[in-house]
């Protein structure tokens, strides 16, 4: 028999708002890290006029710009009751920092980029990615995310 057990998944009515706020803050922090990686890469590439005029550099920077614009839009317009914002931003922030890593050449910039990557990976989400994925999927499919047993 399926039942509802908020304790199993950490879903409680009172905790919902606090959790949503924590996820928003987490997403905002990751977006900020991705933004710093982008700025660092743009500064590094711009400092070398020849490299700035290479299509590979330009395409890499543009891809980061596009990802950042989508992340910002989602952070500004998202459903506070779901886990999507933190989940999506985490994945895309990694993509941006990874793209930025490929572009920097200056040793100091490379070291700073390493720090950003470490910070990104060390930032623990309020809800694990696995659990977030489960809840997003169940909600979309009309299944109570708090129902137990969780799996077949």
């Amino acid at each position: 028999m399926s039942g509802t057990n908020g304790m199993a998944t950490g879903v409680t009515a009172a905790g919902g708002t606090a959790r949503a706020g924590a996820e928003e803050r987490h997403a905002a922090a990751l977006l900020a890290l991705a933004g710093r990686a982008y700025d660092l890469a743009v500064r590094d590439v711009s400092a070398d006029a020849d490299r700035a005029r290479l299509p590979g550099s330009q395409f890499g920077v543009a891809r980061m710009r596009a990802c950042l614009a989508t992340m910002r839009a989602l952070l500004a317009r998202h459903d506070r009751d779901d886990h999507i914002v933190a989940y999506y931003v985490a994945g895309e922030a990694e993509r941006v920092v990874s793209l930025a890593y490929e572009l920097v050449r200056d040793p100091e910039a490379t070291r700073l980029m390493g720090d950003l990557w470490h910070e990104l990976k060390a930032a623990r989400p309020p809800v694990s990615r696995d659990l977030a994925r489960e809840r997003i999927g169940k909600t979309a499919l009309g299944i109570d995310p708090a129902a137990t047993p969780r799996w077949l």
Binding site: I84, Y87, R133, E134, G137, K138, A140
Partner: peptide, 12 residues
């Protein structure tokens, strides 16, 4: 559920 979650996140 996992793939539908990926769909929902990207669509949002």
């Amino acid at each position: 559920q996992f793939r539908v979650a990926e769909m929902a996140a990207r669509l949002a």
